[in-house]
């Protein structure tokens, strides 16, 4: 199947954290290293292979005023046409009217050039907002941003490079580009049942973003999967420092077994079993058997909105 390219615009004012997040998710930076990043000049393009046939064409747009003005005026068509996703990053600590004015103009440009695009507002550096004030802060901002983008399909996220919120937001973003999610979920649920597992999760291998999950035993912590993305991604990086890749991980305690291992070429899989009679070897065998069936879905995933599909 031919590769499909999806265009993602990453915008927001200078210093908001666009390059930082991109570097952590796609280029294996650890959060602290981002303080060394310089300002982005004009646009930095990167093409990221994601799940076999999908390529993310990420446009990291420099946020200084004269760049944004240029994108909105002379370059408007070039920048805003054929956009699948717009990711607009706000610096939570300094959101001024100027930022929302720019955002309004960007929304207009999207409406004109790529009406079907999905908009994700990432209100970023939330670690700098006092914990007691966060809830109220989010409520006010969300209402404000939704109003500005009311003609568009808009979702808000609250993020920080220091915790799992970054993985939550980016997992959602990439998931909206995968069209066969329902088939995938159904297959995953079947696998979960065969393995007698409580839950199964598929992660994209390089970024460790969550692709899909099946949950049989309910769990209270709704943020657990993005926490695991964060935990395992960090650990993979520390293995890399020893020039070693992480092939598999098995953690057992008195009550549960967690298995994480490479699955298809592009993905890793996690299984959680609380039944202590489960033998990891048997589970591994089931996963290997399932592998073939998942390959066409994951390593050559057909893409939403692509003209490859009929």
């Amino acid at each position: 199947m031919a590769a499909v390219k999806q265009k993602l615009l990453l915008m927001g004012k200078s210093g908001a954290g666009k390059t930082s997040m991109r570097s952590i998710i796609f280029a294996n930076y650890v959060p602290r290293e981002t303080s060394r990043l310089g300002a982005t000049i004009d646009v930095e393009h990167s093409n990221i292979r994601f799940l076999g046939s999908l390529t993310l064409s990420l446009w990291d747009c420099g946020g200084q005023d004269h760049f944004i003005d240029n994108f909105l005026e002379a370059e408007q068509e070039n920048v805003f046409k054929d956009v699948a996703v717009l990711i607009y990053v706000f610096d939570a600590e300094s959101m001024e009217t100027k930022d929302t004015d720019y955002f309004r103009r960007v929304c207009d440009a999207i409406y004109t050039n790529s009406r079907g695009a999905k908009i994700f507002c990432l209100v970023h550096k939330m670690d700098l907002i006092n914990e007691n004030e966060r809830e109220q802060f989010c409520k006010v901002r969300e209402a404000q941003l939704k109003k500005i983008g009311e003609r568009l399909d808009l979702t808000c996220f609250w993020t920080s490079i220091w915790d799992e919120t970054l993985y939550k937001a980016w997992s959602e973003i990439v998931r909206c580009l995968i069209s066969n999610l329902d088939t995938l979920k159904a297959k995953l649920r079947a696998l979960c049942e065969v393995c007698e597992a409580d839950e199964v999760v598929i992660f994209e291998r390089a970024t460790f973003l969550v692709i899909a999950h099946a949950v049989i035993e309910p769990h209270d912590d709704i943020h657990r999967f993005e926490k695991i993305s964060n935990i395992i991604k960090q650990f993979k990086l520390s293995c890399n420092k020893k020039r070693a890749g992480l092939e598999s991980l098995q953690v057992q305690n008195a009550n549960s077994t967690v298995l994480i291992l490479d699955f298809t070429v592009c993905t890793s899989i996690m299984l959680v079993c609380s039944d202590t009679r489960i033998r990891p070897a048997a589970v591994l065998h089931n996963i290997q058997l399932a592998n073939e069936g998942f390959k066409p879905l994951l390593d050559d995933a057909p893409i939403a909105g692509s003209d490859m599909l009929i």
Binding site: G245, E247, L249, Q250, Q252, N253, A254, T276
Partner: peptide
């Protein structure tokens, strides 16, 4: 009856 254990396989 079961203390916690972890096993990691590395590519090296």
């Amino acid at each position: 009856g079961r203390s916690s254990t972890a096993t990691i396989h590395l590519s090296n």
